[in-house]
Amino acid sequence: MQITINVNGTEHTADVEPRRLLVDAIRSDFGLRGTHIGCDTTSCGACTVLVDGVPMKSCTMFAVQADGASVTTVEGLKQGAELSNVQKGFAQEHGLQCGFCTPGMMLVSTALLEENPDPSEDDIRWAISGNICRCTGYVNIVKAVQWAAAQNGGEEG
């Protein structure tokens, strides 16, 4: 089937089988390899992307289901030439080690801050609880999101 998906502001088209997973379309057909695969059971969140702004696990969606949608991947997080505050926060607070879960973590964090600009630690832990990290123990991921929230608040204020 012919599909068109707007990824990070750019239209991508592909001719795919209905069974093709969205993550495979993003990684292999569109060549955006920042979205990762960590499990098969919609458990780990390494494949998280935003579909029309909502965090979803792209290994548990068929590419045909995203036909016509707008998808944001890690490659689309930058604000112009600058890293977003969430990206900067992960660097500042050492919110990543091996980097494999990081794209998904940053995408759910970005969506969280859209909805709740000043989250508590519990809010953050709850929001990222669909994403597994095996390296950081989550401590510095929480701090990274708090850093970004503070920075966002400073910019708005």
């Binding site: 990684r27 390899r33 920042g34 997080l77 890293l83 990206q87 660097a91 990081t102 794209p103 940053m106």
Partner: peptide, 21 residues
């Protein structure tokens, strides 16, 4: 020191084995 390796991971530009084509 903040990590020098972070820049690529933060932008989805890491190069893991599955990224090799």
């Amino acid at each position: 020191l903040r990590r020098v390796e972070d820049a690529r991971f933060l932008q989805g530009a890491g190069n893991y084995v599955d990224d090799v084509n």
